[in-house]
Design a protein around this nucleic acid. Structure first.
Lengths: 352, 352
DNA sequence: ATTCATTGCACCATCGATTGTGCAAATATG
DNA sequence: CATATTTGCACAATCGATGGTGCAATGAAT
């Protein structure tokens, strides 16, 4: 690695080379030169020089002066999950198409980390921010307001900023119903055989539980309010819950509503410890579509949240000048077992 | 959204409030005040004021002055894949632990996009850069050198900067061997029943093909050089390849080496179009571990690349002052079917 | 009491761009 | 030819933080 940090060219260098003033150079290179009535020939000269010397603007300097940055942020809970990673992919495409620079950061579902990360983004004068699945969206909101940062919640709603979320109630209804329908007449599922695992006390989990219960009430006998085991959003706690259930009952429930694909990974861990018989006649319904999850050896019905629609709506809200503080619901889709959907990767051209 | 952009406090505001000079305020707030022999009481006063007024440094200004930014970049091919998303997760944890701010961006395996993205990062004075899976690492290198940006390649090697990659040859050998071993004596796989699908003309694909061929040569009769179908890194082209094969031969090969989980998604798409019989006695070996992929209805052996070790090594190289331009090999791990490994998500504390 | 060293801080140039303002030269108008 | 416009650009302040330098006040040493 030869280090010859050939200092980057600045408008001052070009100003000397071209014989015009720095402000002229600046105007030419940032596109405002017509407004400033710069001669076309001057502009061309400067642009040529810029190319020759590989000029690129120092965006920190520009940002400092204009108190904008050209950066658009996406705050995620985690990267390592197909729902959020495909959201990131979609987000990047949107931001790029607007000529800005996408920045994706995760905050691990930790309210403190969320606020700290947002403060950092603000310190870089990020222009707009999408706050996805935040544990404390209103805390983040306070920071954004203090510095006039436009922002939208997505996936989990806040009470102070516009929010775009999935219709988790409807989605849970669809999913619960689909689980029940997988069982034939003679093997019909009973209320105490249909369990919900995963999630915690957030808006999404609550809505899903509400939908789950509603369908149980409508379609089944027995107590619809039981059979709920929130485990938090981690594979391990979910696994433990499955293990405990299995120890207690000697089997898993035949119908499993899993609150998130992250919790589904807990079931995988359980599976790796138990023989196939434990899953012989199981049906799983799971929030957050994962293509591989859809093809497991037992029927897996999934809900695919429409990240694309949510991102699109979020940007639309960001472009309004006085967006209403309300929550927009986006319909998620039911994905039958053994389905391979297209995703954002398909938009990427591949050579060869 | 009440817009009352209470201008953010600056060191000048605090300097007026505290009665000391801006440079004193700056020194106190950035920690260099002892070196500047500022009285402890002055420092306390200023720190209190800073808290009261919610001061946070303008990082663009700081970056402009010091020509550093506190940002560390990770350039990915894509987000939407468990290998790269878990790499992102690991990367963030590393950077955070060093008190810097992680920035993850994807460039879609497009050399132009890669260069453009890196130019943008440079324009923000990113301090260090990890270039993961770049299609044109040397092109990126040229830009980095021109501005003195420390960088390391990861996943795919370049010829001009230090690189940290998986031992794809060994990995492919392990994987190929494991596929062959899945078949019992009486059902033994023949050379023309073991195919490799996916990948393209990059270093990783070449090494994997080399390993694949080597084992075929060592363990099987027949031509070891055939049975290779590079399809690029996209689900769709892989699917097409499977479809064509199926049309031609009336079945899939019994042994399938799939070059990447992205290509594996092509197999999923194929599966959704065909009855189960098409996969009755199939064995798949696939690069890039995906927890759900590991539990499909047929045996799936996976290779897990050690993203954590790669990231760790990369940061170690970044911290050397004259790193050697060489390629470091990291051993990947073979993951038997039906295995649920822990990942970076497990490091995240979850409440409830 | 004078000298010297130390403490504690203020001053100011600087990073690289943006932008309001002003002014000379070129051109148009009468 | 004299005045009014327009064209084309230069000047200089500014964004917020950093860090080298210099200077007064305090305390120590002789």
């Amino acid at each position: 690695m030869e280090h010859q940090p050939k200092k980057k060219a600045t408008i001052y260098d070009l100003s000397v080379l071209s014989g015009s003033s720095p402000s002229t150079v600046s105007a030419v290179l940032n596109g405002t030169w017509r407004k400033r009535r710069i001669k076309e020939s001057t502009a061309n000269l400067i642009r040529d020089l810029a190319q020759q010397h590989q000029y690129t603007a120092n965006l920190q300097a520009r940002g400092l002066r204009s108190s904008r940055s050209g950066l658009v942020g996406l705050l995620l809970p985690v990267h390592d999950n197909r729902y959020f990673s495909s959201m990131a992919q979609t987000f990047e495409a949107h931001v790029r198409s607007r000529g800005q620079c996408p920045i994706v950061v995760s905050a691990c579902r930790d309210p403190q980390e969320e606020r700290h990360t947002v403060e950092t983004l603000i310190a870089y004068s990020v222009d707009e921010l999408i706050v996805a699945g935040a544990t404390d969206p209103d805390g983040v909101h306070a920071l954004c307001v203090a510095s006039g940062l436009r922002h939208v919640n997505i996936d989990l709603p806040g009470t102070l900023a516009p929010s775009v979320i999935s219709d988790n109630y409807q989605g849970a209804r669809m999913l619960t119903e689909a689980i029940i329908c997988r069982f034939s007449q003679d093997m019909q599922l009973k209320a105490d055989e249909l369990y919900l695992f995963g999630g915690r006390d957030d808006h999404a989990s609550r809505e899903r539980i509400r939908g789950f219960r509603a369908i149980k009430r409508e379609r089944m006998q027995g107590d619809a309010d039981k059979c709920i085991e929130p485990t938090g959003y981690s594979p391990n706690t979910a696994q433990t819950a499955f293990e405990r259930f299995y120890e207690r009952e000697g089997k898993l429930p035949r119908g499993l509503f899993i609150n998130s694909s992250i919790n589904f990974e807990g079931l995988l861990r359980f599976m790796s410890q138990h023989p196939d018989e434990a899953f012989a006649d199981i049906v799983v319904g799971c929030y957050d579509y994962d293509p591989f999850g859809s093809f497991l050896p037992f029927p897996v019905i999934m809900i695919r949240q429409d990240a694309d629609a949510m991102i699109t709506k979020a940007f639309q809200i960001l472009s309004e000048n006085r967006p209403a503080v309300r929550t927009y619901l986006i319909q998620p889709h039911l994905v039958p077992p053994r389905t391979a959907l297209k995703g954002p990767l398909d938009a990427i051209k591949d050579i060869e």
